[in-house]
């Protein structure tokens, strides 16, 4: 896969996540795609990837537009400054007031047939949990 093609695919996916465009996101995954997060959790297929992000999108805005990709052959790594906004209260969690935090977010990708084939997400739970105590977005920037 050409580097510019890989970067365009990443850009389309990251924009789709940022805009909650789950239909577009689903079209970017290989039929046999798998996505890991943490050490052992895993979702499979385009529908699984869509469901993962759609689930988080119910409570958070995931703004992925601040990112930097590295591409080598059929693999890529993306360092993202995830701008996380907690907009809708999640059961058992503090009340959502638009709290905002920046979470370092790593993605390691293998492409096949010009689509996302294997993806491994790495982020710190500590960083994610900080959003609950953070100020709303306008004050957090």
């Amino acid at each position: 896969m050409e580097p510019q093609q890989a970067k365009a695919l990443i850009d389309t996916a990251w924009r789709a996540i940022s805009q909650c465009d789950w239909d577009t996101l689903e079209t970017l995954s290989h039929p046999d795609a798998a996505m890991r997060y943490g050490a052992s959790q895993r979702v499979a297929g385009p529908g699984g990837v869509r469901a993962f992000f759609e689930h988080y999108g119910q409570n958070y805005r995931l703004d992925m537009r601040d990112y930097h990709p590295l591409v080598s052959g059929d693999r890529a790594a993306v360092e993202t400054r995830l701008r996380l906004t907690y907009h809708t209260t999640k059961a058992g969690f503090p009340e959502a007031r638009g709290q905002f935090a920046v979470v370092p977010f790593a993605s390691f990708i293998t492409f096949r047939d010009n689509l996302f084939y294997r993806t491994h997400l790495v982020y710190s739970l500590d960083d994610w949990m900080r959003v609950f105590d953070a100020a709303p977005e306008a004050q957090g920037r």
Partner: peptide, 11 residues
């Protein structure tokens, strides 16, 4: 150098 460590499974 930036490290991102996922403590989800550790926790």
């Amino acid at each position: 150098v930036r490290f991102i460590i996922s403590f989800v499974d550790f926790m």
